[in-house]
Amino acid sequence: MTVQHNFRKPLLTTTNLTMQFGGLKALNSVDLSINEGQIFGLIGPNGAGKTTFFNMLTGIYRPTSGDVILDNTSIVGKTPAEIANAGTIRTFQTCRLWDNMSILENLLLGTYMREKPGLFQTLFQYTKVKTDFTRKAEEALAVVEKFDPALASDYNRKVSELSLVDRRRVEISRAILARPRLLLLDEPAAGMDPSETRQLMGDITKLQERYPKMSILVIEHDMTVISGMAEQVAILNFGTKIAQGTFDEVKNNPEVIAAYLGGE
């Protein structure tokens, strides 16, 4: 274990996190700790339990046993909405946008948890709703513009018409707009070609510079993709954490090599 970031306090800690589906242990006693402002990589072959791990962190699944502590509070048993309000925001491997809505509508909904006009203002002081929308829309477009100015100028377009890369960008922007303390990215590069992947990883690293207090947990099945950006990585295989450390430490771990060669 490296100690270089000891001065930062841990934001997320999981202890003995286990998920059992019938007879199958999808996740077996995983301990993980992510510090504030850290980019953390969670790597493993397909079916290693990475997405299951995310589903437990976000309250979609309730762990069979073990605990998830976010900022000194256990979030086990809380609803996904409560966990989102506590500051954990995720993206999805299959890119779950609201498909019948426009880019801007999707982005605006990213800010849903912030203060907004209530029922009275909606019905009787509609101008407040308008100004609120305009303000948040400007902010949303400023975020997505950093990824791709074209997306920001085409903001009324339906997201179902976008390419996969653009959908990912919208999804990540939407997540950023929720001002997460912990951002969970589920295989953000899935389905992209190498140059698109490189660009996306560069974008994510830039995010870190712009929001230094935000922690990012990235899932990848391809180790090389996050080699340059994650300061810590953990390897999952068949639901068990088999290694953790910096990328270089983990890369040469014989168990990891075996998992990758045997797992493919």
């Binding site: 976000t58 979609i60 909405a81 989102a84 609201w98 509508e105 909904l109 849903y112 948890m113 029922l119």
Partner: peptide, 20 residues
């Protein structure tokens, strides 16, 4: 925000829950 939220839960419930 009401209309946006209704559209969101229509399109994708899980995604909506994950955004609060």
């Amino acid at each position: 925000w009401y209309g946006l939220a209704w559209n969101a839960i229509r399109d994708d419930e899980i995604s909506s829950r994950c955004y609060g």
